[in-house]
Amino acid sequence: MAKGRELLGRIKSTENTRKITRTLEMVATSKMKRAIDRVIAARPYASALSDVISRLYSPENAGAFPLLRQPEIEKRAAVILLTANRGLAGAFNSNLIKEARQLVARLDAAGTQVDLHVMGRKGIGYFKYIGRTMLVQRTDIGDKPTADDAASLVDGPMAAFAAGEVDAVYVVHSQFKSPVSSPAVTVRVLPVPPPAAGTAQKDYLLFPSAADILTTLLPAYVRNALYRALVETFAGFYSTQRTAMKNATDNAGEMITGLRRTYNRARQASITQEIAEIVGGAAALE
């Protein structure tokens, strides 16, 4: 029964693996729920902000705001890539990296200089591996991102854009559509797309003035775009990880069933053989 013992060992080790993947699946499920709550909680702020911005915006005053400047050619662009610090989430990180790689290749081909801002160990690891310099590397943002984290990521590129050093800021992140779909997307956060003006321009009393209000709200709008990208990325990460771990658990289960079956068959075969030997031996004595 040398084969049988070997099979038992494999069954045991697959069971241990399944225990780990199942635990990770449960952890990811609960973290995913909390991450989705954050995505939903972030919506009212974003809609209130864009509502007021589009009310105050008129095409005539667009020239006064550095963040609304629409450069015709992009000489230099900042790319902010959001990835996770950890793996075990299927193709989550590699999809994001692929999206970023395509964007960078497109910008390179157009002759645009690219400043890379990378969050997450996985993204940093890739760009280090291909030997590309990164302007900013961040691994300190955990799975509960705050508005301050978003601000710390985007304030640098935003200041550079306002100063005219950078002509566009892109964010590559995971868009959380549903727990089973969170594709990698590229969003251009700067220049701010001109809001659809003229939605029932009501007579508001404006303090200090429309221009001053917009000057303070536009940066908040950009920061919020990044905050939402952050929370969606984490929601996408945990939902992808949950799916990956669920598949791993299911596969382990199937493997164990198969191995058990093989083991039992081997056991039965050896018993049958022993009986046949005994019977044969007894028959030879007669």
Partner: peptide, 19 residues
């Protein structure tokens, strides 16, 4: 707390936006 000091709002206040 508005940008230049406190602002109080009661019912019937005119439409307003302030930082």
């Amino acid at each position: 707390p508005a940008f230049d000091g406190e602002v109080g709002i009661l019912t019937g206040h005119a439409a307003m936006v302030t930082t």
